[in-house]
Design a protein around this nucleic acid. Structure first.
Length: 308
DNA sequence: TCGTAGACTTGCGAAG
DNA sequence: ATTTCGCAAGTCTACG
């Protein structure tokens, strides 16, 4: 799931609920999903929740940190004590009380949208359960690609993933983006911008959306982009991700409004992603879906020409 | 060094 | 209706 905007939304939500709270216990249901000793965070206060690209870092009061990466299907769900069934939460959502906020006073959910957002927890997909002072945080993951990893706070920046991560589009100059792109001159532009060491935060959805906005065909060779196109692409990456963050947490807010139907965010905001067969909002041409570097890829064949 | 295919893992929905 | 199969919002590794 979660690309940068969703992870940032989760970070903000967790700030509301669990910052300054103490971890009482940690239960690990799947060994693969929790790396390192869990005991070192027992009793510790969460003093910060940071984000680097799509990764979250929880800092504890004893100089220990925990990295959480949701990969494709991870979720983080907080429920205050007594809200474990999730029933009231769903009723509230269905009643339409959910406006722009992603959460009420008692619950929060973010990540890959599934029924786990409002059904009873823990469930079959719960990999790790954190008991805090005020409620329970569930790390759920349909597949087991995501993970929690305990490490020293001082070692966070040396982590193999964090260390290689490029800047996020808001911090990156056109010159730096251009330089990073130049390392992949002969690769197609789409896989190049999915590379987190080139630019941080884009995943399959926002890569397609950014390329559409910048009017660049995903199979164009990276080295063929003009300076203007590179600049437009960087702007587009900022724009599509910022819009998603500003929408107040796309995945959650719109998912629940759709009464359990998946992809309402996409119906509402996406210009190309999962819109194959539908008309381009810009020119009316039918959006197509192709495969680029092994990934499903959506584009408007009129707005995004392969050859200039 | 660079580039792509495969692996990891589970469940869903389309296809037959 | 039941079974099969391709595919999925991510990243690392292996191999040419």
């Amino acid at each position: 799931m979660p690309e940068l905007p969703e992870v940032e939304t989760i970070r903000r939500g967790l700030d509301q609920f669990i910052l300054r709270k103490h971890v009482q216990t940690v239960q690990v249901f799947c060994d693969k999903s929790f790396i390192g000793p869990k005991e070192v965070i027992f009793g510790q206060e969460i003093i910060a929740i940071r984000r680097f690209g799509k990764a979250l870092i929880f800092d504890f009061s004893n100089g220990v940190s925990m990295m959480v990466h949701l990969r494709m299907t991870g979720q983080l769900i907080f429920r205050a004590f007594g809200e474990e069934s999730g029933k009231d939460y769903r009723e509230m959502i269905e009643a339409g009380d959910f406006k722009t906020s992603l959460y009420d006073e008692k619950s929060f959910a973010g990540g890959h949208p599934t029924d786990s957002f409002f059904s009873e927890l823990p469930n079959k997909q719960t990999r790790v359960l954190f008991t805090l002072e005020n409620g329970t945080l569930y790390f759920n993951d349909q597949r087991k690609f995501g993970f929690c990893k305990v490490l020293e706070t001082s070692e966070v920046m040396q982590d193999s993933f964090i260390k290689k991560l490029a800047k996020e589009p808001w911090q990156m100059s056109v010159a730096e983006f251009s330089k990073n792109l130049a390392r992949h001159k002969n690769a197609e532009i789409k896989p190049t911008i999915l590379d987190q060491t080139v630019i941080a935060g884009l995943g399959n959805i926002y890569a397609d959306e950014a390329l559409f906005l910048a009017k660049i065909h995903p199979e164009r060779l990276t080295g063929s982009l003009s300076e203007t196109e590179i600049s437009d692409l960087l702007e587009a990456a900022k724009s599509v991700m910022q819009a998603s963050i500003d929408s107040g947490g796309s995945t959650m807010a719109t998912y629940v409004k759709a009464d359990g139907t998946r992809g309402d965010y996409l119906q509402k905001f996406a210009q190309v992603f999962r819109r194959e067969g539908e008309p381009c909002n810009r020119c009316g041409t039918e959006i197509i879906k192709i495969k680029v570097a092994g990934r499903g890829t959506h584009l408007c064949p009129h707005c995004q020409k392969k050859i200039l």
